[in-house]
């Protein structure tokens, strides 16, 4: 009996596994970007678990320690480092590794919130504009054009003047520019979909406009929505970093990558890792998201290739 069961399990399991494997292989997942994005998300969620060091804890006695991972191999005899700070410390003795991990959280949080708001507002307006057409469409698209083209930094600065610096204002500034991209693309899709037979039939059957939009049109734009979102994340992270760098976001001293780069700027010659590391983190993460977005676009919606 035992032999039989073992035969059946070995017979079914590889089959099931093989199916999974061929499926994922056919998807051609970009493994490196996926790994980077996963790392980022894990850092953001489990920051407390990954490091026990407080990213804001100042310790002047341990200031300006160089990254141990580098100094161990390349540092001279006078190199000041310790393995308790694998990536070194900043001018106030704050642990770089811990600040980078908490910075990931800031980055993910702001981008996620801003992008979600932008997505909801943009999609809703895009759906309405595309479906209603005429002056509603014209009005929404004029505002979208203005928002799209207008320099984001300018928008952010106006908001900061209006409301003062802070996390919420970064979110608002990012949202104000992001919604238009969604609105434009979604509206384009809706214009094509609303001419299709099933929409006409729903209209004839007396289905209300918002039911048509929600039940018949929305499901058909989900792919586009996912693709735009994934293509936008990198840009949003970059924008958040720039605003933080300029001091338009979180207060100084907080763990955000943009702020960290700014803090290292004045001491770049002596304490080079201060700016180098967070900037590298931004670049790698944005690259990963961009590659991932390209992959999403190519897999889910080849017609967007040129957009």
């Amino acid at each position: 009996m035992a032999a039989v069961t073992s035969v059946t399990t070995t017979a079914t399991r590889p089959g099931w596994l093989r199916q999974m494997r061929t499926k994922t292989r056919r998807l051609k997942l970009p493994w490196i970007p996926v790994a980077i994005v996963s790392t980022l998300v894990i850092c953001a969620i489990f920051a407390e678990v990954l490091t026990s060091v407080d990213p804001r804890e100042i310790n002047m006695l341990e200031a300006r320690m160089s990254p141990a991972v580098i100094s161990e191999f390349f540092g001279g005899a006078d190199a000041n480092y310790s393995w308790s700070h694998p990536l070194g410390t900043d001018v106030m003795g704050r642990d770089m590794l811990s600040r980078l991990i908490y910075g990931a959280r800031t980055s993910v949080l702001i981008s996620l919130v801003a992008l979600s708001f932008g997505m909801v507002v943009g999609t809703t307006l895009g759906l309405i504009a595309g479906y209603r057409g005429k002056w509603v469409d014209a009005l929404v698209m004029r505002f979208a054009d203005a928002a799209l083209g207008f320099p984001t930094i300018l928008v952010a600065m106006i908001i900061v003047v209006l409301l003062g610096a802070g996390m919420l204002n970064i979110v608002l500034a990012v949202m104000l520019t992001v919604w238009a991209r969604f609105a434009r693309m979604i509206r384009g899709d809706v214009l094509a979909i609303r001419e299709l037979d099933f929409v006409t039939q729903a209209k004839i059957a007396g289905v209300s406009a918002h039911m048509i939009i929600a039940r018949h049109i929305f499901p058909n734009i989900v792919n586009t929505l996912l693709v735009i979102t994934s293509l936008q994340i990198g840009q949003v992270i970059l924008l958040e970093a720039s605003l933080s760098f300029l001091g338009l976001g979180l207060p100084p001293g907080e763990a955000a990558w943009g702020i960290m780069v700014a803090e290292g700027r004045t001491v770049i010659v002596d304490v080079w890792w201060l700016s180098l590391l967070p900037g590298l983190a931004i670049t790698i993460v944005v690259l990963a998201f961009n590659f991932f977005g390209d992959w999403m676009r190519d897999t889910m919606d080849p017609k967007l290739r040129r957009a």
Partner: peptide
């Protein structure tokens, strides 16, 4: 992908 302010520094 690279932030301009960082490349500058």
């Amino acid at each position: 992908a690279t932030p301009g302010f960082w490349i500058a520094i």
